[in-house]
């Protein structure tokens, strides 16, 4: 049974479809990257999964449960958390309060999860009392991912986690993503740094013009000459 299964979905923001029949699946504890040129619909697929846009046709299953057309606040309860690409922290809240907001819907004690996030991102522990808006881009990304981890999700959706970061921070963030995955969280990630993302993913999907173009193991995609020439920059 797949963790997430996307079956031939069509949809977009207004009346015009951006996705024209996208299918994909993520197995438990996999890291799957979605890559492709700008405007291919990469982030749109992720938003469709998370209920942020209208899916006109097709269906989305999470743990075999149909979640097509559910609202984000319902989907969060099922164990999928989403980290948007931009504006992904609450700038006037402190680091600690951002993480608390991540656990907003939890009725049980989340202090263990909080410790876990601080262990995963040690720089955050020193900055816990600081406003998230005053952090560097890399640290802000840590807060954003940490916030999404507070619900202990089984699937994490990351929209371009490396966008706008310096190479040093990109590497740090990817290392953390790998570690989160090792603790048992499935990861679906959209990335511009395609080669680097595929280098630690299990599988990848290449989208173009709102549809599937290639899908294969990350290793095969990296070795595929056509893919390399067209999508990985030679």
């Amino acid at each position: 049974m797949s963790l997430l299964q996307v079956d031939d979905i069509y949809g977009g923001y207004g009346n015009a479809d951006i996705l024209h029949g996208v299918s994909m699946h993520i197995e438990p504890q996999e890291i799957v990257s979605i890559i492709g040129p700008n405007g291919a619909g990469k982030s749109t697929v992720m938003k469709a999964v998370f209920g942020l846009l209208k899916v006109r046709q097709g269906r989305i299953l999470f743990n075999n449960k149909d979640i097509t057309r559910r609202r984000p606040d319902q989907i969060v309860h099922l164990g999928i958390c989403y980290v948007p690409q931009e504006f992904n922290v609450f700038p006037s809240l402190t680091v600690h309060e951002n993480l608390e907001m991540g656990a907003f819907i939890r009725k049980d004690s989340y202090s263990e999860q909080l410790d876990h996030v601080y262990e995963l991102f040690p720089p955050l522990k020193d900055k816990r009392g600081q406003s998230a808006g005053h952090l560097s881009g890399g640290q802000r990304q840590m807060v954003a991912i940490g916030r999404a981890l507070m619900l202990n999700p089984s699937l994490l959706l990351l929209d371009e986690p490396s966008a706008g970061l310096s190479p040093l921070f990109i590497e740090q963030i990817f290392e953390r993503v790998l570690e989160i995955n090792k603790s048992g969280v499935g990861i679906l990630m959209v990335e511009q740094n395609a080669k680097q993302a595929l280098s630690f993913s299990h599988r990848g999907y290449i989208l173009s013009m709102g549809g599937n173009r290639f899908e294969d193991s990350a290793e095969n995609l990296l070795n595929n000459r056509e893919v390399a020439e067209m999508f990985l920059g030679g």
């Binding site: 998370f50 922290v89 809240l93 907001m101 819907i105 619900l151």
Partner: peptide
């Protein structure tokens, strides 16, 4: 309070509050 912090969060970014699961 939890509700007070959520109010500040909404004031910062309503969309993010929604995807965080805040009602």
């Amino acid at each position: 309070t939890r509700m007070g912090k959520a109010m500040r969060a909404l004031s910062d970014n309503m969309d993010l509050a929604q995807v965080t699961g805040i009602n």
